[in-house]
């Protein structure tokens, strides 16, 4: 009974750790790491929904009476992971450029530098 929704709780906890990292840390790389954590938690949410108790991976086998877990969430998340790393790379590239343009990757430092200019 207690563990009926356990995966979802972990999803929420991870998501909030990610969200808190994004909001509270002023370092831009740390913010990206927070976003990655957030993203990973969403993956777990989808995969948990596709799971069937006593099921197996959705690859056809000849064994009798096989229950397959739902392949659709797997497809959605598989592509999301690869798209996620591509967008992360784009964000990191922007951070590299910000460092070169402003001399810092710290949000507050960048803002105070801007005020001084």
């Amino acid at each position: 009974m207690f563990f009926d929704h356990f995966n979802y709780w972990i999803v929420v906890i991870l998501m909030m750790i990610g969200l808190y990292t994004v909001m509270s840390r002023s370092n831009l790389v740390k913010k990206m790491i927070g976003l990655s954590l957030f993203q990973i938690s969403v993956f777990l949410l989808y995969i948990s929904m596709g799971k069937i108790e006593g099921g197996t991976a959705p690859i056809v086998s000849n064994a009798p009476d096989v229950i397959y877990s739902n392949p659709l969430p797997h497809v959605l998340i598989l592509t999301a992971i690869v798209v996620g790393v591509a967008t992360t790379a784009l964000g990191l590239a922007l951070i590299v450029r910000i460092k070169e343009a402003f001399g810092s990757v710290d949000e507050e430092e960048i803002l105070s530098n801007e005020d001084n200019l």
Partner: peptide
């Protein structure tokens, strides 16, 4: 959780390539 394809991708992308990208940025 039976998502072998996703596990495969996550291990290669999340633990592999994206770490390399973060280290390159750092």
């Amino acid at each position: 959780l039976d998502a072998v394809d996703v596990a495969f991708t996550e291990a290669a992308v999340g633990a592999g390539i994206s770490t390399v990208l973060y280290l390159g940025t750092l």
